[in-house]
Design a protein around this nucleic acid. Structure first.
Lengths: 347, 347
DNA sequence: ATTAGCACTCTCCAGTCCCGAGTGCTAACG
DNA sequence: CGTTAGCACTCGGGACTGGAGAGTGCTAAT
């Protein structure tokens, strides 16, 4: 299934040409553009072979060639050279990060924005978290008579809050007592462990504990609601979205509630960057798009996922390098805050 | 500047027709559709007058008439009858709200979704807040050696958190002591008041206090970052966005960072619903769109803004009623949690 | 194996034509 | 006088046409 040297080289050229022209590339244009030591006829023969084997295709007789999913795949596996980002670029990105505030969702937004900008496609970055949320601390703050604010702090520094209504008026002292008791009883436990716990609770305490448990559980299964997305407008300006129909299609795909479906191996433990090209993704809706995904975070610990979404006609080497670098960088930053000192992988 | 009875009636019909057909309406079609007791020629005469006075216009000779901004304005002021929402609809909406969770941003998202769905346009709802954020309570939770999570609870039950780095390792006990002191010193104060305070602080306490102050300040000036937006896809499917250029235009306008500009009287104290039609909005970008805005919340206290954004060709009575009802409902819900019992305005 | 040559195909664009919907005017009518 | 019928006129949009340009696939010669 491997290609001859020359055909491989040709495929590579076709792809680079197509990636930045966005129009089918023909044999004649090819030799002119790259000053190939062959005539257009030879190229045509080679192209015919490449097409037979499924690496490129014809939109219709007599238009140039367009890379197929299989063509891109071969290119990504075997042909392209993934060179490091220019250190200039890296510096710029690092700089932006260090200027950012320290709120978690601020990072995540920033990461998405930086990524989207760098690769000129849409980028999604999820909030970091561990596999299972554990309670670190719970606080109750009185609001008025029968209502109080419940603040749940989880282990990886996630915080959630909600208003809680009680059947009777509650003094702050009582609220504090309840939270103290719960902190003592449930500190460090997960949602499941709390529900299995045998601790004796008053009616009121049970009311609060239940809310806490729900918060933990919803954090575990939620996830993509809290992802940041950027660059949608950028990607919509690409020529593949010239018709409003195509635009709506992409917008559909990027709807928040669809993300978990299209980004399947989101937080899979695997290291490194995964690329899914067109129909390789099982979701029909994604057949015209490619995904470049990576987990980020500390090994086995806290982390999230980042992904680039764009048309299959995408600058893969650049995209992959950028995702790799950025996920590493995010990992380092998380380490700084939550874990052992950074592993100093990259200079 | 007032219209004759007949012309007013005619304008009203033109608008309803245009609002649901989206195509310029002609004299002949008019008499057929509404079985008017006049001939098309008479209608043409009347239309000519309406056009002279600026209420409708011609895309080009020999297409039907289209309402102008002025036409819509007159319609909204004088012609349309704003009837109450069917109680069926109200019930449905109430129901959805009571099923929703109790997290604040969940409400806001829900409100935006319900609104967008009901009016078939894009809807924006901001998070509720008071004019000036005041500190209710601050908590510090140790994460590791030199880092801790700072949780700031503000008066109107807003919560923000961020990771704080200390120059030296910090035990939880020390953190608790610091937060206790700060709670005592700054509870109930605003950002400005904290910065003016003369309380003696240790170096470490000052570090934390400063972060708290920044959180309060950024909450006060932020705002639209935390708005929920829904229905963008719905509105993009309308015929006015048939070309991708128009779509990009709207997406531009709805970019998060643009919202404060286009929704100018966001949290103005005025009661009731405000309508801005096309060029009435000073922002050039909004000249093709209309806005229906309302404040929601408790009188003078906590509250936010909600807005519907769509093409000027919009079903104004329905939109206005829905915004009015929903802002009332949100107000009631806020009251339930933060204030005196609900004012029971609406059955 | 490579290439020149050539007939063929298909898209894209510009031009043309015509139809339909709608207008504005004029003259007639009750 | 307000209303109406009649009619010439005007556009926009869809259908059709005819190159021009880019590209292909095949064949025969090198």
């Amino acid at each position: 299934m491997s290609l001859t040297e020359r055909r491989a080289r040709l495929l590579s050229l076709i792809i680079s040409e197509y990636v930045d022209s966005a129009t089918p590339v023909g044999s004649e244009a090819m030799v002119r553009r790259f000053e190939l030591p062959f005539s257009s006829a030879t190229i045509r023969n080679e192209m015919a072979r490449l097409e037979e084997e499924g690496y490129i295709s014809h939109p219709h007789t007599s238009a140039g060639r367009v890379p197929s999913d299989k063509g891109y795949r071969y290119y990504v596996e075997a042909l392209m050279e993934e060179r490091d980002l220019p250190s200039q670029t890296k510096q710029t990105i690092r700089h932006q990060f260090h200027q950012a505030g320290r709120e978690e969702d601020e990072w995540v937004h920033l990461a998405a924005a930086v990524l989207a900008r760098a690769v000129e496609n849409a980028a999604v970055v999820t909030m970091p978290r561990t596999a299972e949320s554990r309670l670190k601390r719970v606080e109750l703050v009185s609001i008025q008579d029968t209502s109080a604010l419940l603040v749940v702090v989880m282990q990886q520094a996630r915080v959630k809050q909600q208003v809680l209504i009680f059947p009777e008026p509650m003094e702050q002292d009582l609220l504090t007592a309840i939270s103290n008791h719960l902190n003592h009883a449930f500190g460090g436990l997960s949602a499941i462990e709390i529900s299995r716990s045998q601790v004796q609770l008053t009616q009121l305490e049970w009311h609060v504990a239940n809310a806490v448990r729900e918060v933990l559980a919803s954090t575990d299964q939620g996830g993509f609601d809290e992802a940041a997305m950027e660059g949608v407008r950028t990607v919509l300006q690409k020529p593949e979205f010239a018709t409003s129909e195509k635009m709506l299609n992409l917008l559909d795909v990027l709807e928040r509630r669809n993300l978990p479906k299209i980004i399947p191996l989101a937080e899979a433990p695997g290291e490194g960057v995964t690329v899914m090209i067109g129909a390789e993704n099982e979701q029909d809706a994604m057949h015209d798009y490619s995904l470049v995904i990576s987990r980020y975070g500390t090994p086995g610990g806290i982390g999230g996922a980042m992904a680039v979404v764009g048309p299959t006609r995408m600058h893969y080497p650049r995209t992959i390098s950028t995702v790799r670098f950025l996920s590493q960088l995010m990992g380092e930053m998380l380490s700084t805050f939550y874990d052992e000192p950074p592993a100093a992988k990259d200079g």
